[in-house]
């Protein structure tokens, strides 16, 4: 479970990116985070990943109390979540296979486990035949699927995706969302920041809207009235 309690976040330059945010996300939930550019959506995901720290309030995810988590523990927090970004962030000098395997190497997984798990996830994102390609030999949608596989391969509790469909065509966007939906059905918490009104409307999931650093609406079966 993730809980934000009166969370605020002020950047060192004085920008108040989040103000008094109260939010609870249960295990296994699917949540869209929407809002205008500069609203504070990315800041919210950065707080969850421990990339930035709350400057006020409390933020807990599972057993991690992020307002007082020591730097040394951040890698272990990250292993409980798979993260996906608009710009993919793959290792450009590693093959598709190696990119996915890397998430397992980092946690010291056995080679036999790596050999077993990577193909499963390659298959999940339908890239088995492109396992030996390098990222720059793939389309945007394919690269993002590699990123998804890497995020999922070490079996995290939740997936955090910040505009995962920002760099792919509408058809691929739909496919990626479908993939997230499937992942959610496996019991994982999924948090997706997006600008895609159409998709949000189609999926009828919980929608949290942020404006100027504050949560202005939180609807369950939702459609988005404030996107872009």
């Amino acid at each position: 479970m993730i809980t934000f309690q009166n969370v605020s976040m002020v950047y060192p330059n004085g920008t108040a990116a989040l103000r008094n945010v109260n939010l609870q996300i249960n295990d296994g939930e699917f949540v869209f985070i929407v809002g205008k550019s500069g609203a504070g959506k990315t800041t919210l995901t950065k707080l969850l990943m421990g990339e930035e720290r709350v400057t006020g309030g409390q933020l807990h995810t599972g057993k991690f109390k992020l307002e007082k988590l020591s730097k040394r523990k951040i890698p272990y927090l990250r292993r409980t979540m798979g993260v996906v970004f608009q710009d993919f962030r793959l290792f450009s000098n590693k093959t598709v296979y190696e990119n996915i395997a890397f998430a397992l190497r980092v946690i010291g997984e056995k080679p036999s486990v790596i050999r077993k798990r990577v193909p499963v996830f390659l298959n999940l994102v339908e890239l088995t035949d492109k396992a030996d390609r390098f990222p720059d030999e793939l389309s945007g949608g394919e690269q993002q699927r590699v990123a998804f596989a890497r995020a999922l391969v070490n079996n995290p509790k939740m997936i955090i995706a910040d505009e995962p469909t920002g760099n792919v065509d509408p058809e691929m966007s739909k496919e990626l969302m479908d993939l997230l939906m499937r992942v959610n059905k496996l019991g994982k918490t999924v948090i997706v920041v997006t600008h895609e009104k159409d998709l949000v409307d189609i999926f009828k999931k919980r929608v949290v809207t942020i404006r100027d650093g504050e949560i202005v609406s939180d609807r369950a079966g939702g459609y988005a009235d404030e996107i872009c």
Binding site: P75, R78, R89, N93, V106, I107
Partner: peptide, 16 residues
């Protein structure tokens, strides 16, 4: 440096 940044996202420790 980019590689190192990504390594951090997937939970690599400083030692690693």
């Amino acid at each position: 440096r980019d590689e190192i940044a990504v390594m951090r996202y997937v939970g690599a420790t400083n030692t690693f």
